[in-house]
Computed example of a mutant assay.
Amino acid sequence: MKITLITVGKVKESYLRDAIAEYSKRLSRYCKLAIVEVADEKTPENASEGTDRRIKEIEGERIAKHLAPDAYVIALAIEGKQLSSEELAAKVADLGLRGVSHIQLVIGGSLGLAPAVLKRADYLLSFSRMTFPHQLMRVILLEQIYRAYKINAHEPYHK
């Protein structure tokens, strides 16, 4: 299975880059992982709704260039479905059984995802109704993907 994270912006903090590298290394046993970063747009303070909408559209266009037509796209969105780790593992396993060979997971920028990206997604996934920094979300998502593979392989993993 190929897993691609499509993310907006660069990870600036070294401790987050280290965690991403660690989970990328761990995942290499289970899948082919790629991380694609698209440029984020600077959001001015006190930006209007129109400016926010335009920024999401620009970032959405950048994301769309990397969405493969044959990939199963999961967009992280606050309005998505919340799953337990076991349910996420079952979803990944089910996709594999259905012949899906490429899953793309999309993490938007600080303003979220453009409506066009949400519409293209095959599934909307929410980790919480809370908002998380999009850079930290990469680590959380990679950890949960790793946990899903460990669950599916019936291998022990800390709880």
Rank of each mutant, 00 (worst) to 15 (best):
S14T: 11
A114P: 06
R53W: 06
A34M: 07
E143Q: 00
P69E: 14
K42A: 13
I63W: 13
S128C: 09
K2S: 02
K25V: 00
A71E: 08
Q135D: 15
S126P: 02
E57G: 01
I74D: 04
K2A: 05
A93W: 04
G96T: 04
A19T: 12
I3A: 03
I20P: 00
H66V: 02
A71K: 03
A75I: 06
K150M: 08
E57V: 00
E143T: 00
K25D: 08
L5Q: 08
K159H: 15
V92I: 15
A121T: 05
Y72I: 13
R98F: 03
L33F: 08
S84K: 04
H66F: 14
G60C: 03
E49T: 08
K91Q: 07
A75Q: 05
Q144H: 01
K10N: 14
I103N: 05
Y157P: 07
I145W: 01
I58Q: 07
A116H: 04
S24C: 01
K10G: 04
G96P: 01
L16Y: 07
E59H: 12
A93E: 13
R26Y: 00
K12C: 03
S101V: 03
S101W: 02
I151R: 06
Q135W: 03
A21I: 01
D94W: 06
H102F: 04
E61L: 08
H154G: 09
E87K: 15
I151C: 08
K91P: 02
I6H: 07
E143Y: 00
R54Q: 14
A64K: 12
A47K: 02
Y149D: 01
